[in-house]
Structure formats: C-alpha cells, structure tokens
Simulated scan of single mutants.
Amino acid sequence: MPKVSEEHRAARREQIIDAMLRCVARDGFHKTTMAAVVGESGLSAGAVYLYFKGKDDLIRAIAELVAGEGLSVVLDRAVADVPPPHRVLEAVLERVIAIGEERGIELHRVALQTWAEAARDPEIKAIYRREGSRGRAAWATYVERAIAAGHLQHDADPARIAHTLIGLIPGYMVQRLFFEDLTPASYAAGLADLTGCAAMRRANEDNT
C-alpha cells in the first residue's frame, strides 16, 4: 500500500477545513453538522474522520486559523523598515481578507462566530488565549521598534498599545458586517488621523 506523503495529508486537512469554513459562513456553527462538512468537502466520511474526530476538532482548527492570521505580518513589519502603526494594521486586515478570498469565504463572518464559541467553550478560549499571547508579544515588539523609529511618543507603553492595536482588528471585522464598503485602507486611515492629532497636540503643548 503506497505511503501517504505529508503534503497529501496537509492538503486533505486543508480541504476539510475549507469545507467547514464554507458551511459555517453559510449556516453558522450550530447548524453545521459533520455530515454537511463531509458533503461539502467531496470526500468520504472515513477520510474526513481520519483527520478530525468530530465537529469540536474542526472548530478548534478554525479557531487556530482565525487567531493566528496576521501574526506573521506583524512580525515581518517589526523586523523590516518599521512603518507607522496604521500601515501595519492595514497590512494585517488586508491579509485577513485575502485569506478569506483564497478560501472562498468572508473570514470575518467565521471569526465572529469563533469568538462567540470561545465565550462558552473553555478549550477554544484557551486557544485564543495562547494565540492572543503570541499576538500581544508580536505587537509589543513592533511597538518598541515603532517608538524607536519616532512613530509613537518615546514614553509610550508597548504592552498597552499592543492591546489597543489588537482590539482594532475585531472592531474592523464587526463593522464589516454592517458597512461592506469599509476597506482596510480607510479604517487604518482613521487610526492615522487619531495618532496624527495626538502628535500635533503634544507638539503644541511642548511649545507653550
């Protein structure tokens, strides 16, 4: 019997996750059944259950996907020529949208549902806590370098700013439900306006 390659396993796993994402985006978590995922994936029930024992396993996989997206973008911006915060936020949001488009869904709709699951499921909450800690550390590293680059005031607290920037991401996703014309660029421009006003006020105070 031929040995299944790791690439094949990874591709099958992604195929099943994509099917679950489509089902959840269309019908919601609680209406999505394993039978629906099997049908959506085009695989046999045995093949699906080989990778995921049940719906909870798939929900955890989706939670990890949603929570982990954008982390590499922040880390990349922290080690490269450091752009201002609104540019990093814009890049993260664009990446989230691109991931959804690649998978044929609106990822923000699924993300909102995984957050709701985290409120009731301790295991999913633990996933978000773990991924959130990684994200907070990445953002704090970026903020430290943004301060050094002069984008933020020199006495700013990296941990506090990291929490604030992280909070802007779900804020965008919530608003996308109601304002479909809201783009990452326009949303991030609002942050640029806010930080620009703060910088101007500080400069005026220093001159008085």
Score class of each variant (00 low, 15 high):
R87C: 04
I62L: 11
E90R: 15
H30K: 14
A138V: 12
L50N: 09
G46P: 01
R136A: 14
E102I: 03
L43M: 15
G104S: 05
V74W: 04
L58M: 14
S72C: 05
V73R: 04
A119G: 11
G54V: 00
A137L: 15
S72V: 10
E69A: 14
G54D: 15
T114S: 13
Q113S: 04
A80D: 15
L65Q: 06
P85F: 07
G39Y: 00
A61V: 11
L71H: 13
L50C: 09
L112S: 01
T32H: 11
D57I: 00
V88Y: 06
R103C: 05
A111G: 09
H30L: 13
Y51F: 06
I105P: 05
I97Q: 12
I127N: 01
L112G: 10
E117H: 10
Y49L: 11
A36P: 00
G132K: 05
M34A: 09
V37N: 05
A63V: 08
R60Q: 10
I105M: 06
D81I: 12
G46C: 06
Q113Y: 04
A63Y: 01
M34W: 01
G132I: 06
S133N: 12
S133W: 03
P83I: 05
D56F: 03
G42K: 13
R129S: 08
F52L: 02
I124F: 04
A35P: 01
E102Y: 01
I105V: 15
A45E: 11
G135T: 03
M34L: 15
G135H: 09
R129W: 00
V73N: 07
V38Y: 02
E64H: 03
L65C: 04
D121A: 10
K125R: 14
R130I: 02
R129K: 05
A36N: 07
T32Y: 10
P122V: 13
Q113I: 06
R130Q: 05
D81H: 12
V92N: 08
A36Q: 10
E106Y: 03
E131V: 09
W115H: 14
A137H: 08
V66K: 01
D81P: 03
G54Q: 10
L93N: 03
L65W: 04
F52Q: 03
E102P: 02
P85T: 04
R77D: 14
I99H: 08
V73A: 11
L65K: 14
F29L: 12
G42F: 07
H86E: 11
L112W: 07
D56G: 13
A78L: 12
I62W: 00
S133V: 15
A118Y: 03
G100N: 02
I105D: 11
G39A: 12
Y49Q: 03
A98P: 01
L89M: 10
V82P: 08
A47V: 13
E102F: 05
D56H: 13
L65R: 09
H108V: 11
D81R: 14
S41F: 06
A116H: 10
E69H: 07
A118G: 11
A47D: 06
S72T: 11
A80G: 15
I105W: 02
S44K: 07
A137E: 14
I124Q: 04
K55H: 13
V82E: 04
R130H: 09
T33I: 08
K55P: 03
V96E: 09
V66I: 13
